[in-house]
Design a protein around this nucleic acid. Structure first.
Lengths: 340, 340
DNA sequence: CTGAAAGCGCTTACAG
DNA sequence: CTGAAAGCGCTTACAG
């Protein structure tokens, strides 16, 4: 059986298609009685608006998009993304907006997806994550004039709205805390060096270490996976001048690092203190529970979604600096044991 | 500036819109030279197909949908969903299909979303999860004749394709293993009793316990959250006839249960053995690492996505039984200590 | 308040 | 191989 259209409703109601459209959309131009009759018929015959036809007439898609350039399988293990997405969803679902996700292999493909989505009016706007140090997506998006909100600090780019939090301050907080405990040799297991927030953290790390005379402030780059984090930890704990404390750029690597410490016979925090960035259940459930840089990631995602909805609505929207992550000390950090 | 359309291309190329359409879509009906010229012009002026217009002419949306009826925030903590989605994405992204997610509050809203998506041709098909014991979505979906693949065992429903795995066998495997270790008092912390797979597991649990004379085979229902899992564990470990082994219906609850055991001063596996269902990094990184019912969830999602694509393509598609989860013994299970 | 009509950007028979 | 035209299901000025 064919899907009913407004023409069917119009015929049954004995009015024009235009009148039906006005009635259905709550627009002025029809009498209350006609409107009621039209609505009743629409319901009765199971009419649903045809989004394609609406879109062709310029209506919004009520969908926002997010392109993720990561191996698809990483989504399942890295809590950050899911928490971010859950926060975005919470905000969107309250307004019956949908979220369209697409995973791509590289940057060219990502830009191509934006181009296509916008060309096809498939999304009303996009959320952009994982800013690179030098990121061609920024200008591509600006060229498209696709409503965009950047999640993460953007620097000075005219016209683009971002929701971000300070990545440097938490690093400083953690290092100062460890230094106060007596640590003089702190290493860091960092994320992808190409990412902008990694660069910010690395710089902050080196600067605060220099200021506090904590040397050599080594950062080992990784791809964020637990495997890479384990490898980096093994390397650090095997080195002749073993650090007494390690900062990790995410929670998965910190937990993996903890397992490596145990495996190598080091006690935590007796032999080495560990600090995670991003605080998921993971951190709280291992033994000892991990000291972590904690922030409300779903809220972060929610802010970004709300901002994007505002941009789409056409308002003049300012960037938002969310609260920075802050240190939650737990059992994985303590004063270093005196060396034998 | 206005977005270019095939009319613009037609004008520049000096051919009709129809010819442009054929050229762009690789259809016969234009000469090779015309096709090349059209393609070149399209590229030059930055033409993108208008999806709405295509959809209005009956083209597919190249998008599949998934409605999740869970609190949005749970997405971030429950590894199962993200792993499933990552597997789905891996399959889809290879074919440039997008995934649209929508989180809803209740079943009525979920069915409404299906109705709307299908009415609007926003998706070519949907993946349905978390089957209930008595699930009105099944008939609703069948009525819509929306291409659907059910993730999870469906029972005998004509016409619907499902991708599922045996939920009973792993329960039997785990209980037999624990029984062989000498456990005579095994409890279970189950999921939402309303879910079909929970019901299947509960029944299998009671049956195998009866067969092996392992009593009383108590299942405590939960909502799958770590908090509920902790509460259930506290109750079990406080009871006068404390079980010597506990099965959990997901990994988050098992890890939370482990923390409770430690908090109450019980040793694992000395005082109580623990078994998780679903095996994420979580299970492997806690101490002791958890014995778990393991399965490849991303692969499961991938199978479901591929099946759905086949259904959409119109082929006659059979349901797929994926391999069942199997027990991976780790440090959290051992023979029970003799009671004092 | 209502009707008739054009237009959104494509696809696809139907003639030449 | 190509052109002219109808149609997909809406929305929205424009007349009455």
């Amino acid at each position: 059986m064919k899907r009913p259209t407004i023409a069917d409703i119009a015929q049954r109601a004995g009015v024009s298609k235009g009148a039906v459209s006005y009635a259905l959309n709550g627009q002025p131009g029809v009498s209350e009685s006609t409107r009621r009759r039209v609505l009743a018929i629409a319901k009765e015959i199971g009419w649903n608006p045809n989004g394609a036809a609406r879109a062709l007439s310029g209506a919004p898609s009520d969908t926002i998009g997010m392109v993720l350039r990561r191996p698809a399988r990483i989504l399942g293990v890295e809590p950050f993304f899911m928490e971010l997405i859950s926060g975005v969803e919470a905000e969107l679902s309250a307004r019956s907006y949908a979220l369209t996700l697409q995973v791509v292999a590289d940057q060219a493909a990502e830009i191509e997806v934006y181009r296509r989505w916008w060309g096809e009016r498939r999304v009303d706007g996009v959320l952009v994550c994982d800013l690179r140090v030098d990121d061609p997506r920024i200008t591509a998006l600006a060229d498209l004039s696709l409503p965009t909100v950047v999640v993460g600090s953007l620097g000075e780019v005219a016209g683009l709205v971002s929701v971000w939090s300070d990545d440097a301050a938490p690093v400083v907080e953690a290092v100062e805390y460890l230094n106060a405990l007596g640590h003089r040799h702190i290493a860091r297991v960092g994320g992808l060096p190409d990412l902008r927030h990694t660069a910010v953290r690395t710089e902050a790390f080196e600067e605060v270490c220099r200021r506090l005379n904590v040397e050599p402030a080594l950062t080992i780059p990784t791809d964020y996976t637990g495997e890479d984090g384990a490898r980096a930890t093994r390397r650090l704990l095997s080195s002749p001048r073993r650090p007494t404390a390690i900062l990790y750029d995410n929670d998965v690597m910190a937990v993996a690092g903890l397992a490596v410490a145990h495996e190598m016979g080091f006690s935590v925090p007796g032999d080495v203190s560990l600090v995670a960035w991003d605080d998921s259940v993971l951190c709280q459930l291992v033994h000892p529970p991990l000291t972590a840089m904690s922030r409300d990631i779903p809220a972060y995602g929610g802010h970004a979604a709300r901002r994007l909805l505002d941009v789409i609505a056409g308002g003049s929207v300012a960037s938002l600096q969310d609260v920075a992550a802050h240190l939650i000390p737990r059992g994985s950090t303590a004063a270093p044991a005196p060396r034998a």
